[in-house]
């Protein structure tokens, strides 16, 4: 556990990672308290659907009633970005969770048993890794029909191979250690050796990697939503909110930047969410890689 303490101290000491921690904490607070920050109107059934104030296309400037204004179709931007935080965490956590389970399962099978099992699993990862991620994700979403669920499935399909490979490599390293040999010698089953001895010693870098990949997953999900391949219309989602502004980037000639709020605000949320995870990720990598930590 002193590892964790050491790590925590390192993280707080570095201004960049501290900024990352603060940013992520703010987003966690926003997500938890979304119903208080942006209370859904009375009788609003699905809280993830952004309430509309009329149906006119033209965005309305920020006002007392709508602090960030409304975007195309009179969707309230403030409500959208606050509840969008929840959607972002949900996509990130669900995808990373499933990817971890799949990756750990297949990666440890491949690394521990080697031979034909390893060969088969690794050749399958080769196939999945032969596509640029967004292209494969687009194809899968198009095939399943656009929805948030399809986006999550697509992101899982494109991300698990890297994790399986990472775990496999780490398991390969610990497989020859004496303690593995010893527990096998006293007759422990393969399952027990993997679960009790191999994985706990190999899984750490993967877990850190995974927790920090949440930002990247959310970024790709936002891109898919922006392209019109994600959440249904009106769902609180940063990517979709950004795409609503596509017709309003240029205002009337007297005031060309009139609709700046509709264009910038949802994107700023994405930027800072991803930035927070990347700042943390950099710090973790420096701490975990002792060659770099000394510099």
């Amino acid at each position: 556990m002193s590892d964790w303490k050491f790590m925590a101290r390192q993280l707080v000491k570095n201004p960049l990672s501290l900024a990352g921690i603060i940013i992520i904490s703010i987003f966690v607070i926003i997500a938890i308290f979304a119903p208080l920050i942006a209370p859904p109107p009375e009788g609003h059934l699905d809280h993830y659907m952004i309430p509309r104030d009329g149906y006119s296309a033209t965005p309305k400037l920020p006002s007392e009633e709508h602090i960030f204004g409304t975007t195309e179709g009179q969707y309230d931007i403030f409500y959208g970005v606050i509840w969008g935080t929840r959607s972002a965490f949900r996509v990130g956590l669900v995808v990373i969770g499933i990817v971890l389970v799949t990756g750990i399962l297949l990666g440890s099978l491949a690394g521990y048993f080697g031979g034909i099992i390893d060969e088969v699993i690794m050749r399958i990862t080769d196939i999945f890794l032969a596509f640029p991620a967004l292209i494969l994700a687009m194809a899968i979403v198009a095939a399943l029909g656009p929805s948030l669920r399809s986006v999550m499935i697509a992101l899982t399909v494109v991300s698990w191979p890297s994790y399986a490979r990472l775990i496999r490599g780490d398991i390969l390293q610990v497989r020859e250690e004496d303690y593995i040999e010893a527990s096998r010698g006293i007759g422990a089953s393969n399952f027990r050796v993997i679960m009790r001895h191999a994985l706990p010693n190999a899984i750490y870098p993967t877990l850190v990697m995974a927790s920090l990949d949440i930002g990247a997953v959310v970024l790709t999900a936002a891109a898919l939503s922006f392209l019109g391949l994600g959440a249904p219309e009106g769902y609180a989602d940063w990517g979709q909110l950004t795409s609503f502004a596509r017709n309003w980037i240029v205002g009337p000639s007297s005031d060309p930047l009139r609709y700046w709020f509709a264009v910038t605000i949802p994107g700023l949320f994405i930027l800072f969410f991803v930035l927070g995870w990347n700042l943390l990720g950099d710090a973790f990598r420096d701490i975990l890689d002792p060659r770099l930590a000394r510099r």
Binding site: T242, S243, I270, L271, L275
Partner: peptide, 17 residues
């Protein structure tokens, strides 16, 4: 680190704006 975290589609919209 900002550049690496930027949503490409958003950057494009800002440039267009």
């Amino acid at each position: 680190i900002f550049g690496w975290s930027l949503p490409t589609f958003w950057l494009g919209l800002i440039l267009m704006m």
